[in-house]
Amino acid sequence: MTSKTDVPGVALISGSGSGIGRATALAFAQAGCTRLALLDLNEAGLSTTKELIEEAVGSNTSLKVHIFKCDVSNPDSVTRAYTGVKETFSRLDYAVHCAGVIYFGRSTDFSLEDFDKQNNVNYRGLWLCSREALRIMRSQSLDCDAYPEAQIPPTRAQRGSIVNISSGLALVSQSNCPAYSGAKAGALAVTRSDGIDYASERIRVNAVLPGIVDSPMTNPDPETRKWLETNPVQSTPMRRFGLPEEIADVCVFLAGNKASFVTGAGWCVDGGFIAGMAY
């Protein structure tokens, strides 16, 4: 369990209107983070996430949750949202980028429109968000100075930490998802490069690679769920779906100072799916 002093400061979660993003926002709040910026195009979903956070935290009067409507595929929308976060909270300590979409189909059956939509959210959109987060983080003080009450050792201190949601399909693939696999591989590659480029500025950048997760994006209908249960889930050593909360807990850990020597990494959170591919 993450203690209440592990994530002081401001956390931004894109795609927090549902699924892994919502679970991650809740996990930050439950870990003691009291300033949260929730980003999504789905404003109704954001409102629900905010309500769930307020219910979970209870009477904590220091809690501040702000909603920002954001289309990650639109550069101007991304810039406005991140500028709004900086103006509202004065700094940004953690950014977890969860916004994602998936469309299935073989390359010869796939439209250019769907290919572009998928890349504009999963790859280009993630890069736009990460770029804005980096710009804010580079200009701010170390968290050991910003939050002296947290007693963060100077060696573990950081200006900020970014966690990008990639996918196990960045490393392996399955039928009918070439565009999604390509976009998630791009997200992992950007993470590795940014992790190298900003390490000297005390900003860590990592990726989480979920396996088959029981979320609205993965399971949009009963037919898809049935196919997943009888195919990739059965190829997962743990033989079950992952929970959004299980992904969220790893995101919070990677974001915080407990993971201070981890950067440029891609963590598989997949019930052993990638490891099992070796057999």
Rank of each mutant, 00 (worst) to 15 (best):
M137R: 10
Q118P: 00
Q174S: 09
L188Q: 10
S161H: 08
L128W: 03
S141C: 06
L171M: 14
I102H: 14
N122L: 01
A179L: 01
D109P: 00
Y147H: 10
L134D: 14
S161N: 11
A183I: 02
S181A: 12
V190C: 12
S193H: 15
V121W: 04
S141R: 13
N164S: 10
E113F: 01
S166E: 04
V172T: 15
F110Y: 14
R135T: 05
Y147K: 05
P153I: 11
W127G: 00
I152F: 09
A179S: 14
S141F: 06
A150M: 04
Y147D: 05
A150K: 05
L128M: 07
S130F: 00
A146Y: 05
Y147E: 08
E149D: 09
A146K: 07
L134C: 13
V121I: 12
Y147M: 03
C177G: 07
F110D: 01
S111D: 07
V190F: 15
A187W: 01
S193C: 10
I136M: 09
F104R: 10
A179W: 02
S175T: 15
D116A: 11
Q174V: 03
G195N: 11
R138L: 14
L112S: 13
D145G: 01
L126G: 09
R135W: 00
P154C: 10
N120L: 04
V163S: 10
L134R: 12
P153E: 13
I102Q: 14
S193F: 03
N122F: 00
E149Q: 14
D145N: 14
D116F: 00
T155M: 11
R106L: 02
D143V: 02
I152L: 04
F110V: 03
Q151K: 15
